[in-house]
């Protein structure tokens, strides 16, 4: 079958120790049997490794940080599109999604660029800060949590929580604190990086399991693969993981996608406690950095997302391989100064 040629723009090229999902999403698209992709990388910083992986990314353009707002982003995308004729954009960062969701209609109408993103309501409702309400609404167990805005709120946490607690940033970062003093340290560190509020969540003892999934926006789960972290870095990221057979987890995923009518890629972070109960810790509104494991297990979620963005009907995947592992590795690329200079000064490479 002849592959359809498409130009796909992808963010999240930071294949670092806490990796963005861009490079694995691109690898999945390069493995596609349906599409022959030209990849336009969209980067925020000059040292995102994906910029220099020329067999992965065909051309990279710097884009403005999310804080610059959607108008600035749109202007930059207009310029990039005038050269690259982008068919689809796949944003991969939580922090940039708000702007991309807001721009989705404009991108489609004015620039003919398609996306397949969660709705703004879905995006907002699953925010870490809204998780307790989300759990109540969709009948899913969620650890008790509270938002704090000031270090003065820390001493009173004792009346509502038993230590340890998890201190979380609104977009990224989580640390386990065993005392109010530790909460204060993490509060200052996290709020300086990600702003306020900071989320205090009850620590649940158990085994962490994650699911990468994709919904069609009508309540159907197109694909889902559960994974258990095998090796975890000091940032809590999986450096190795294995696909597992967990029917209860799969049913929880399908139930959640059905009740939210989730549209696009997602990752569920879940703790299974010693009683066998599942607690939802987070919903990430995009593919995880380990999404290539799903491809290895027979479900190419990024390819399915592109199909749906193009308006094609996609049949749900019925199975996946159990007991497949991913093992991440680091690799030093040698980069010529001219390349670094080009992306740093001209914003293109």
């Amino acid at each position: 079958m002849k592959k359809k040629k498409i130009n796909v723009a992808v963010t999240g090229l930071n294949a670092i120790d806490s990796p963005g999902p861009g490079v694995p999403v691109i690898r999945a698209l390069r493995d596609s049997k349906l599409f022959d992709v030209r990849i336009i990388g969209l980067s925020y910083e000059s040292l995102e490794p994906g910029i220099y992986m020329h067999d992965i990314v065909d051309k990279t353009y710097q884009i403005p940080l999310p804080t610059a707002g959607k108008a600035t982003l749109l202007e930059r995308l207009k310029y990039i599109n005038s050269i690259e004729k982008i068919d689809i954009i796949i944003p991969n960062f939580d922090a940039e999604l708000f702007n991309f969701i807001k721009l989705a209609d404009t991108l489609k109408k004015e620039l003919k660029i398609k996306t397949f993103l969660p709705t703004l309501e879905q995006f907002e409702e699953r925010h870490k800060s809204n998780l307790p309400e989300f759990g109540k609404k969709h009948k899913i167990k969620v650890p008790y949590s509270k938002l704090i805005f000031n270090v003065k709120d820390i001493p009173s946490l004792r009346s509502e929580f038993t230590y340890p607690v998890v201190v979380k940033g609104k977009f990224y970062d989580a640390s386990i604190a065993y005392s109010p003093e530790q909460v204060a340290t993490y509060f200052n560190k996290i709020s300086a990086k990600w702003g306020l509020p900071v989320i205090i969540q009850q620590f649940v003892h158990g085994q962490e399991v994650n699911v990468t999934a994709i919904g069609d926006g009508k309540g159907n789960t197109i694909g889902a693969v559960p994974m258990r972290k095998q090796y975890i870095t000091d940032k809590g990221k999986a450096w190795s993981g294995i696909s597992i057979d967990d029917k209860k987890l799969m049913s929880m995923t399908q139930k959640l996608i059905k009740s939210t009518k989730w549209r696009g890629g997602m990752e569920l972070e879940i703790i299974k406690d010693s009683e066998g109960d599942y607690y939802l810790l987070e919903i990430n509104p995009r593919f995880p950095a380990w999404v290539y494991l799903a491809v290895g297990c027979g479900q190419n979620h990024p390819e399915a997302l592109v199909q749906m963005a193009l308006g094609e009907n996609v049949k749900p995947f019925k199975k996946y391989d159990i007991g497949k592992l991913f093992v991440r590795y680091s690799w030093d690329m040698i980069v010529e100064l001219e390349e670094f200079e080009k992306i740093s000064t001209l914003g293109e490479l």
Binding site: Q207, M227, R228, Q230, G241, I242, S243, I244, D245, D246, I322, G323
Partner: peptide, 18 residues
């Protein structure tokens, strides 16, 4: 029931990944 065994004595529990 679903425990996987290999001839080398490797035992894999697919429900937990252990």
């Amino acid at each position: 029931k679903n425990l996987a065994l290999s001839d080398s004595g490797f035992v894999f529990d697919p429900s937990t990944g252990d």
